[in-house]
Design a protein around this nucleic acid. Structure first.
Lengths: 195, 195
DNA sequence: GTGTTTACCGAACATTCGGTCAGTTGACAA
DNA sequence: TTGTCAACTGACCGAATGTTCGGTAAACAC
C-alpha cells in the first residue's frame, strides 16, 4: 500500500462555497460568522475562500438574491394577477410556502436581514416591494368581501405572512412536503382551528 | 437633617444603559453592534459603559432574562393550568401577546438568539422549556376534541406561535393595543379569515 | 518531460473588537 | 477651603476581524 495519501482533490467552486456559507450564516448569524468559521466548515483555510468568491458580503448578496428572485418570479406569474383576489391570495400563499421550502436557507437568511450594509439595505427594499404586492392582494380580497370585514387587511397581511415566514424557524425536510404545509396553513388561517 | 436620598448627577445608570443597548441590539443585531455603537447611542465614551455594566454579554443576559421571566411568570399562573384546555390555550395566547407588547424589545431580542455563546444557549434552553409547555397545552386541547383533528397538534403549536411571535417584526405601539391584537390573532387562527 | 492551470496554504496586513485603567471633573459635605 | 465620590475621559492592550499576496503541490495539456 502506498503510504502517500491518495486523497481525491474534490475541490470547491463558488456554488459549493455559497451553499456551505449560507448554512453557517443561518446557524450563527451573518455577523456572528467569521471567515475562519466558513473555512473550518469548508475544510480549507480562510484564504482559499477568496479563490472562489470575492468576499463575505458578496456571499450574502448572492444568497439574498436567490431568495428574492424566487419570490419575484412567483408574483410575475399570471396566476398572481388574474382571477378572483381570494383565489390569487391562496395561490400566492401556497407558492410562498413552496419557495420557502425549496430555498429554505436563502429565505431564512433574507428574513433576518436588518439593513446593516448597502447589500442588506438593497435586499430589504426588494423585500418591502414583495410585501407591498401581498398587502395589495389582501386588500383586494377584502374589498371583494371575501375575507372577514372585522379585520384590518394590513393586519391580516402581516399575520398571514408572519405565519408563513415562521416556517424558517423550525421547518426540516423530514417534517412534511411543502404542499402539506401549505394545506395546513391555509386550513388554519382561512377556515380556523376550532371545530 | 439626614437626607436619605442623595441628589445624583445627570447621567446614566444600569437600567438606562440596558434599555438603550437593547434598542441598538434590535436595530443592528447583537453581533452587529459594537460597544462603540452603544457608546454613541448613549452619548458617552466606550469606557463609561463599563462603569455601569460588566460588559456586552451581561447586557444581553439581562435583556433575555427580562423576556423569559415574563413568559414564565405567565405559565406559572393558575389560569394556565386549570380549566378546559382550549380556554387555557386562548388565555395563554392572549397573555403572550400582552407580554410581547409590554416587553417588545426584550422579547424581540430573545426570538433572534441562535446559541452562539453560553448566555445564548441558556436562554435558548429556557425558551424551549416554554415552547414545550405550549405544545403540551395544544395537545391537550386536541385530545379534548376542541381543535380540528385533521391538523397535527405539534404543527398547530408552531404555526400559532409563529403567528404570535411574528409581531416582533412589525409591531409599533401606535398600531393598536395588545388586547386588540390578541383579538385579531385569536379570530384569525381560531375562527378563520374566510367569511 | 515541460509548461500551464487549478486549487489551495501560510504569513502577513490594517482595522476593529471587547475590555482595562490611571486620571480628571464637578457637585456636594464638612 | 478642603476632601470625598459618583461619573466619567482618553490612552491603551491583546485578540480577532476581513482581506491580500507570494508561493506551491498536484492535475492536466502537449
Amino acid at each position: 500500500m502506498a503510504p502517500t495519501t491518495r486523497q481525491r482533490k474534490r475541490g470547491h467552486d463558488p456554488e459549493s462555497v455559497l451553499s456551505v456559507a449560507v448554512g453557517v450564516f443561518n446557524e450563527r448569524g451573518y455577523d456572528g460568522t467569521s471567515m475562519e468559521d466558513l473555512a473550518r466548515a469548508l475544510g480549507v483555510t480562510k484564504s482559499a475562500i477568496y479563490y472562489h468568491v470575492p468576499g463575505k458580503e458578496q456571499l450574502l448578496a448572492r444568497a439574498l438574491d436567490r431568495a428574492l428572485d424566487g419570490l419575484f418570479e412567483m408574483v410575475a406569474d399570471e396566476r398572481a394577477s388574474a382571477g378572483p383576489a381570494i383565489e390569487r391570495l391562496e395561490w400566492v400563499v401556497r407558492q410562498s410556502v413552496r419557495i420557502l421550502v425549496e430555498r429554505l436557507p436563502y429565505v431564512t437568511l433574507l428574513l433576518r436581514v436588518r439593513g446593516n450594509s448597502r447589500t442588506e439595505e438593497l435586499a430589504l427594499e426588494r423585500r418591502r416591494e414583495f410585501d407591498r404586492f401581498i398587502a395589495h392582494l389582501v386588500k383586494e380580497a377584502a374589498a371583494d368581501g371575501q375575507i372577514r370585514p372585522d379585520l384590518d387587511p394590513a393586519l391580516v397581511t402581516r399575520l398571514l405572512f408572519g405565519t408563513v415566514n415562521s416556517l424558517t424557524e423550525w421547518y426540516q425536510p423530514s417534517r412534511g412536503s411543502a404542499d402539506d404545509l401549505a394545506d395546513a396553513i391555509l386550513l388554519m388561517t382561512f377556515d380556523g382551528l376550532r371545530v
